[in-house]
Design a protein around this nucleic acid. Structure first.
Lengths: 240, 240
DNA sequence: CGGACCTTTGAGAGCAGTCAATGCTGGTGG
DNA sequence: CCACCAGCATTGACTGCTCTCAAAGGTCCG
């Protein structure tokens, strides 16, 4: 029994899972109340830098991140790497591969990661049984489908400072458990990854972080970030 | 009986529908072979500039474009309009609203348009009955989910000329029926809409079109575009 | 403990944005 | 049917932001 299987059978998976039932909180048992939990197929743990799959490979269904962090990357014909998305614990990925049956991008672990996957057919069949399951699945699909919108909105903003503030603000929201409020975090990705994700040069990203620090909004120590003025950060994420 | 209902019951809907069965071509009867066709709910025809729905409104399920063209827009806090996507005949929209149950953006008709919508619950129920239906629905969901990726890839390219070439190239691919090859098209959207969609100033878009015309790649007459060198356009869409 | 990789900082050039004005097109009403 | 008008598209000049190139300092992993 490997770590993934272990995690997928503990409450750990369900705690922040995109497929989690709305009633989970009322059932302290945890994943016992999630009809999708038995469908989870563990995958082996990924080391930092290891590839979950490559673009063009056959789809393995929908993937759920249990722990760690990953990035989806594609390569432009000139060889430039583009970071399409970061994937954090509790999030689904691979939905786009349902169309062609093939992965649209490489997915690489940024830190040691644990993931599992679900067969789409199994999910649809299971969901058909109960209305509540249908709604939950539809919601999970929608969440995954909607995740790109903020990224497009971010990229449509032309000021570098605003893109950087938005990126930080959004990452913060995704990393903090519901109800809590993070004051510090450690970025799982490099400045270069960030730059290739928000369409800037890595130096511009670095300068943006420095600027936010000089203004007292955050405190930067390499990848360790302390949020000193969450309200100011939120404001800069909204305005130019 | 209004035009939408009429269209939804004719073969017109199914001809390019994202939900179309793979076997449609072998069944000249058309929509008779599509299990989802009876689920289509017609909506009234939209005039140019008319709004299908506003951000924040309750989701009406998944919407299928039958004819015309629409745009999804969101407004930044500073009032700037951002064009998140264009929607062409045969394409699904509204999938993102499944998560929150509310629309994430305004959707506005660019030209007189005919649309219909499907209840997500009905689609899932119907799909459960047959494996083939499941696969088709999964594929349609995936297509919709995957549509943002090329847009993100486009926005991650920093050269204006490349963004413009990519936009044109991609729009061309979406507008031409499978198997055919368009040599001319009429853009349903303004230069400003294009600019707000690919993150440039409208003057930059105009200059980009002019440049492509000066180089003999296309011929421009306002919104009427003639493709003179499809290969060159494709090349410029890939390289800097 | 060593070294590779990452991050920061500086200087200069180029490309796209902004402001401004003219020309065109398509639609409307006389 | 034609003239007019409003919105849209094009073009020009100039500013400024971000990219590129370059080098030094820092961090973390093996």
């Amino acid at each position: 029994m490997d770590a993934a299987a272990d995690s997928c059978r503990s409450g750990r998976l369900c705690a922040r899972c995109a497929l989690r039932p709305a009633v989970a909180s009322s059932a302290p048992g945890g994943d016992a109340s999630c009809p999708f939990a038995p469908l989870a197929q563990p995958l082996r743990p990924l080391a930092r830098g290891e590839r979950l799959h490559a673009a063009g490979e056959e789809s393995i269904g929908v993937v759920l991140v249990v722990d760690g962090a990953l990035k989806s990357v594609s390569f432009a014909p000139d060889g430039q790497e583009q970071v399409l998305a970061f994937h954090l614990p509790g999030e689904l990925l691979g939905l786009d591969a349902l169309a062609a049956g093939r992965q649209g991008s490489d997915v690489v672990a940024l830190s040691p990661s644990i993931v599992c996957h679900f067969s789409v057919e199994a999910l649809l069949s299971k969901a058909a049984a109960r209305a509540a399951s249908q709604a939950r699945l539809a919601r999970a699909i929608g969440e995954s489908a909607a995740r790109d919108q903020p990224q497009v909105e971010l990229l449509l903003r032309r000021q570098a400072a605003e893109r950087i503030a938005r990126f930080l603000h959004r990452l913060l929201a995704r990393m903090q458990p519901p109800g809590e409020s993070l004051v510090e975090l450690t970025l799982p990705m490099s400045r270069e990854d960030i730059a290739r994700h928000i369409g800037l040069a890595l130096e511009t990203v670095s300068r943006g972080f420095t600027r936010l620090q000089d203004d007292g909004v955050i405190r930067v120590l390499g990848r360790h970030i302390e949020i000193r003025e969450p309200d100011v950060l939120a404001k800069r994420a909204r305005r130019t």
